[in-house]
Design a protein around this nucleic acid. Structure first.
Lengths: 230, 230
DNA sequence: GTCTATACGGAGATAGAC
DNA sequence: GTCTATCTCCGTATAGAC
C-alpha cells in the first residue's frame, strides 16, 4: 500500500540503497511530492493528511515532525514550486541580444513566458494560490516577488535601456511592462483560468501574442521610417 | 443566536408578519444570504453547513430540503450573485452616445467596469470561483457567459460599428476588446488578485486606465490630424 | 415544511514504544 | 527519527415527530 519502505528496486530490478545520512531528506522529499499532488488535486481544505501520509510512504507522525502542521506543510510545498516555475525562462536581456530586432525579441520572450505559465500544472497551482490568498496572504506576496524578480523587473530594465538608446519611447517602463504582459500572455491566461480544459492552440497563441506586441509597439515603438539615430 | 424565528420587529418596533405564502421563500433567502457569507469567508470546502444553519436561523434539515446538498447550495448561491455583479454596468452603446468622443467613452466605460470588478466583495467572489473551478467547471462557463453578455459582447458590437463608420480601424474586434480590457481593468485587477489588502488609489487607477486607452487608440484609433470623413 | 436528534465517517494532531 | 495506535472533534446528511 504505502510505498517503497524496503526492497525498493530501480528500473533494472536492482535494490535502491539510500545513502544513510540522506534518509531523512529523502523522506522529506517524498512528503513534499505527495503533498503537492494532493493539494493540487483537492485544494487546501479538502486535502487529506491521511492521503498524503499513504502516498508518501511515511507515517503521519513523521510528517508532523518535519512540518508541524498542515498549514506549514502547504506553505513549504507551494513556495518551493513557485521559483522553479520561472527557472526555465530565458532572461529578457539575453533574448534581446540574440534577436535581430526589438519586435522579434518581445515576441520570443512573451511566447516563452506564455508557454511556461500556460502549462496545466502551473495554471492549477495559480488557481490554488488565488483561491487560498485570503487564508495565506504570504503566498500572494511570494507570487508577486518571484514574478517581479524573474520577469517584470528585467523587462523594466530592458525597456529603460532601449528608451535611453532611442529605440523605444517608454515614459513609464513599469506600467508599460504590465501592459505588455497583459496584452500578450494575459489574454490566453485569463481564458485558461476560467476554462481549464481548453487546449492551447499554437497558431492562435502566436497570433494573439503577435497582435499584442504590435499593439505595444504602436504606442511605444519608434515611428515607421525611422532607421536609427540621426 | 439563530435569527428572527418569531417576535421579529422592524425598525419601529412593529412586529413583522410575513405573508403566509412567502414563509418558504423568505427562509430560502435567509439560507442564501448566510451561505454566501460563509462561502466567501471560508471557501467551499472549509465552509460549514452547521455555521450556515445557525446564521440563517433555520434548521439543517430545511436547508437540505431546499437545496439537496452542499454542492448544489454552493452553485445556487454563487450563480445567483454573478449576474447581479454586472447589473450596475451602463451598456457601452449608451456610454458612447453620451460621450463627446471615443476616447472619453472608452475611459468612462473601463473606469466604471473597474469600479465594479475591484469591489472587495467581487474580488473575493472571483478568487473563490477561480479556486473552485476544477471542482465546479460550470462556474467558469457561467462567469465567461455573464462577462461576455454584459461587457465583451456589447463592446465588440461597438468597435465593429465604429470601424464601419471609419472612426476606428479594428480588424479583429473580439481580440481588440480582450486587449482593451486587459490593458485597463486587467492591470489593477491582477494586482488585487494577489494582494487583496491593497486599497484602490483613485488617481492611480485613473492614470492606469487613461494610459491603457491611449495604448489601445495608438493602434486602433484614427491617425492624428484626422477630423472626420473626407 | 420544519424541527430535533442522531448516524456515520473522516478530519488534524499526538502519546509512547522502539 | 520513525512507527503504530488512538484521541477528540467536526463534517455532511438523514430519520422520524409534529
Amino acid at each position: 500500500m504505502g510505498a517503497e519502505r524496503q526492497d525498493a528496486t530501480d528500473e533494472y530490478g536492482m535494490p535502491i540503497i539510500p545513502a544513510p545520512g540522506d534518509a531523512a531528506a529523502r523522506k522529506r522529499q517524498a512528503i513534499i511530492d505527495a503533498a503537492l499532488a494532493e493539494f493540487l488535486a483537492e485544494g487546501y481544505s479538502a486535502a487529506s493528511m491521511d492521503v498524503i501520509t499513504n502516498r508518501s510512504g511515511v507515517s503521519k507522525a513523521t510528517i508532523y515532525k518535519h512540518f508541524g502542521s498542515k498549514e506549514r506543510l502547504f506553505l513549504a510545498v507551494v513556495s518551493g514550486v513557485l521559483p522553479k516555475t520561472y527557472a526555465d525562462l530565458t532572461p529578457p536581456a539575453r533574448a534581446l541580444a540574440d534577436a535581430p530586432d526589438v519586435r522579434t525579441a518581445l515576441v520570443r520572450h512573451t511566447t516563452e513566458l506564455a508557454r511556461i505559465l500556460l502549462r496545466p500544472e502551473i495554471m492549477l497551482l495559480r488557481r490554488l494560490v488565488i483561491g487560498e490568498i485570503d487564508r495565506f496572504p504570504q503566498l500572494g506576496q511570494l507570487w508577486y516577488l518571484v514574478t517581479y524578480d524573474m520577469n517584470n523587473g528585467p523587462l523594466v530594465e530592458m525597456l529603460t535601456d532601449l528608451t535611453a538608446k532611442g529605440e523605444l519611447h517608454v515614459p513609464d517602463p513599469k506600467l508599460a511592462v504590465q501592459q505588455l504582459v497583459a496584452c500578450t500572455v494575459g489574454i490566453p491566461q485569463l481564458v485558461h483560468t476560467f476554462a481549464p480544459a481548453t487546449p492551447v492552440d499554437d497558431s492562435e497563441l502566436a497570433s494573439t501574442i503577435g497582435s499584442g506586441v504590435d499593439l505595444f509597439l504602436a504606442r511605444y515603438g519608434r515611428p515607421p521610417g525611422w532607421h536609427g539615430p540621426a
